[in-house]
Design a protein around this nucleic acid. Structure first.
Lengths: 123, 123
DNA sequence: ATAATTGCAAACACTTTGCATTTAT
DNA sequence: ATAAATGCAAAGTGTTTGCAATTAT
């Protein structure tokens, strides 16, 4: 069975209080002064992802970012140029994904962050 | 100005004839017997991505995959478990992205591949 | 002729892993 | 007591880069 270790408790707390997805290194930056190892953070993140407690996705650079799966989650539009984030209060693809599920018998993994270009960066 | 080198010609040809996005290594597997280097392939892919000729996205493992931007492009639903691909003949998110553009002044970068779970793998 | 591109090998950055030690149960 | 988790350091991958040699214009 899963043990509630210091690493796991702290990782959960940090993801819970974060309002955007974090990288393993983001978490490590917060936790390394508590004698928590980066590899231990990766192992927690993997374990919890497999357990379905955490959602893993990749940012635009291909780096893994993690969020706690919660009812109160948000979607973001992130500009790949200026990295400004626009928080949405609804899921923009919910309808489209329902349709895919019905028509194609395929359940899409929703991502929290959608990348593109904001109007200020669109010259 | 951009020179039409052997590497560039071959990379374009290969992406043109591929019906799914390819990794740099996929392309290298085809081209290394023609004395073309992996680093040269990466440089071509980068250059063409910046030129807007090629679209770059990340697969579920965070590895970069590339497609030639064409009118005749397709979207795929890829099962993260069995890796089966379902080819769609329309863009499932076109409407949602138009709405985002109008409401949030943000232009979403469409991806070719959407990850999730197919019904056979959904126990 | 010359500016752009390549090959090669080395460097990078993120992530994973083996093994001895520690910790939650 | 013991199965599970961690720390540490080393290894693994995909990707990038510096520089001298080559090639398209």
């Amino acid at each position: 069975m899963l043990k509630k270790t210091k690493t796991r408790k702290r990782v959960e707390e940090i993801l819970l209080s974060a309002d955007t997805p974090l990288t393993a290194n983001d978490i490590y930056t917060i936790l390394h002064q508590e004698q928590i190892t980066l590899s231990s953070i990766y192992r927690t993140l993997d374990t919890y992802t497999k357990e379905g407690i955490i959602a893993k996705e990749n940012n635009i650079d291909g780096i893994a970012i993690y969020t706690l799966k919660q009812d109160d989650h948000h979607h973001f539009l992130e500009c790949k140029n200026c990295h400004k984030k626009i928080k949405l209060d609804y899921c923009p693809y919910h309808q489209a994904n329902s349709k895919i599920k019905k028509n194609n018998a395929f359940e899409v993994d929703e991502t929290n962050v959608v990348y593109g270009t904001c109007k200020d960066c669109k010259k």
